[in-house]
Simulated assay, not measured.
Amino acid sequence: MRPLRQISAVGAVRTDGAVWSNAYMRMTYDRDADAAYLAIEDEVAAGSSVENVVVERPGRGDIVLDFDADGCLLGVEIIGAAGLLRPTAVAAAVQM
């Protein structure tokens, strides 16, 4: 795949002109928990995540990858989001 160049919050254009869209992705942010969630699917049903892979970022937070029973990625939880995401990403997230 060729590199992407960002054109908006919901899409990008590859350098060869083809459009790639991430319209189904949505990020939420809970300020009290300082946690963000990037949902890959439009709807992630409660209990559908059966495997979690944790990526530790010592002193900054953790990134948790949520997978379903088929091994497909459902979403990404970012614990300690203020230390792992740019402020513009946190501000653009749906505030919970």
Rank of each mutant, 00 (worst) to 15 (best):
D32Y: 00
D66V: 00
E43T: 12
E41P: 01
V50A: 06
E43F: 07
Y24C: 13
A45Q: 11
Y37K: 03
D30P: 02
D62T: 12
V64G: 01
V64W: 00
R26E: 14
S49A: 15
F67M: 08
G47P: 05
E43C: 07
Y24E: 14
E43P: 00
Y29G: 00
A36V: 02
V54R: 03
L38P: 03
S48E: 15
E51R: 04
E51A: 12
V54L: 02
S49D: 00
E56C: 07
D66Y: 01
A33C: 10
G59I: 04
T28M: 06
V50C: 08
A39V: 05
E41Q: 12
R31F: 05
G61Q: 04
M25V: 09
A35L: 09
Y29A: 04
A46P: 07
V50E: 12
A46E: 15
V50P: 03
R26A: 13
V54F: 00
R26N: 14
I63T: 06
M27K: 03
M27N: 05
Y37R: 02
G47K: 11
R31P: 09
S49E: 03
D34I: 07
R60E: 15
F67W: 05
M27T: 14
V54Q: 01
A35I: 04
V44G: 09
D32N: 12
I40P: 02
S48F: 09
E41S: 13
G47F: 07
R57K: 15
D30E: 12
D34Y: 04
V44P: 05
Y24D: 13
A45T: 09
D66R: 06
S48Y: 05
N52C: 06
G59Y: 04
D66K: 03
S48K: 08
G59C: 07
Y24I: 13
Y29L: 01
Y24L: 15
A39F: 09
D32H: 03
D34C: 01
R31N: 05
A45M: 10
S49Q: 06
R31A: 15
T28Q: 06
G47Y: 08
V54G: 00
S49Y: 05
L38F: 03
T28W: 03
Y24F: 14
R60T: 11
D34F: 06
V53C: 08
E56L: 12
V44Q: 07
V53D: 10
I63A: 01
G47M: 07
G61F: 02
V64H: 00
Y24G: 14
A46C: 07
D32I: 11
A46D: 15
I40Y: 04
A39S: 14
E56V: 15
A45N: 05
N52L: 10
N52K: 09
V55K: 10
V64A: 02
D30M: 09
A39K: 05
M25N: 11
V44W: 09
A33M: 11
R26M: 12
E41A: 14
A33K: 10
G47H: 04
G59W: 04
V44M: 10
V44L: 09
G61R: 11
S48A: 12
